[in-house]
Amino acid sequence: MKPFDYARAQDVSGALDAGKIIAGGTNLLDLMKLGVETPERVVDITRLDLKRIEDHEGGLRIGALVSNSDLAVDDRVRRNYEVLSRALLSGASGQLRNMATTGGNLLQRTRCYYFQDVASPCNKREPGSGCRAKGGATRLHAILGASEHCIATHPSDMAVAMQALDASVEIEGAEGTRTVPLAEFYVLPGDRPDIETVLKPGELITAVILPAPLPGRQTYRKVRDRASYAFALVSVAGIVSVKDGVIEQAALAFGGVAPRPWRNLEVETALAGREPTRETFDAAADILLAGAEGQGGNDFKIPLLRRTFRAVLGELTQGA
């Protein structure tokens, strides 16, 4: 870990443009120890008043420093946003959830083996150096949204649920506050995989806004290599309502398969107004997987995503 100056922010304005932000530290310190992150100055924001979960326009406003644990166990979240609670509880471990924050989790970096290994070229770590993952070990890697420059996946569970929930990100910057829908917050790698979000240098995430809960059933299904404490190979966040035997509305997001929490509104359109049958699910899965491309070691994610997608839809529509 490179030496750095440590400072503690006393208020939000003091954290803007002040250096690398540290909150829970669970991802940043991990990467600093590996030499992947090498900040000159680290700004501790843990004492800022961003730890509240407040009712907000029928939904919730979640402070950026609310821990993953506190968010997962909040009564309102458990009652109205089950998909989010389950996503959070499926992530990491009890210890890590106690430290990790809402804002930090959104900005989690990829688990790509080559990104974490400073001896390997990586366009995300060092733009223009190349992608060593291509042609290497790709079990963790993307089947959707990747580019020739980067095939890494976003590792968050929480962000996948928030994507399905139409969350927005509240951002504080020198020019004031702006709110960005999560759908527009993440950017695909293209030829600049080092740029992962629309967050500008010096800006700070202060909150996540959840709109009023959608009707219907919710679930988060995570498929992984161990029963617990492992990153998703594939995950599906789903909120589906059924009325008179047809799907009224479906909101679906996918983890472990793309450089960002993945959502495809055409998939949801294909489901709406249809009977919840295997044919309907398969037709929607065809849309979801159109253009999906494996790298060899992750080819299995294509059938796995289809099967998990169908199972989640089956579960959410069964008997409804």
Binding site: Y6, R8, I22, G24, G25, T26, L29, D30, K33, D44, T46, S69, A92, S93, G94, Q95, L96, N98, M99
Partner: peptide, 27 residues
């Protein structure tokens, strides 16, 4: 492991279990 991947470093901070390896002492 020094990376929050094993739990051997678990301590309790204000009543909550955390990985002490992923926490700066100065915080």
């Amino acid at each position: 492991c020094d990376h929050g991947q094993c739990g051997s470093c678990t301590v309790i901070a204000d009543g909550r279990r955390i990985n002490s390896c992923l926490t700066l002492a100065c915080m």
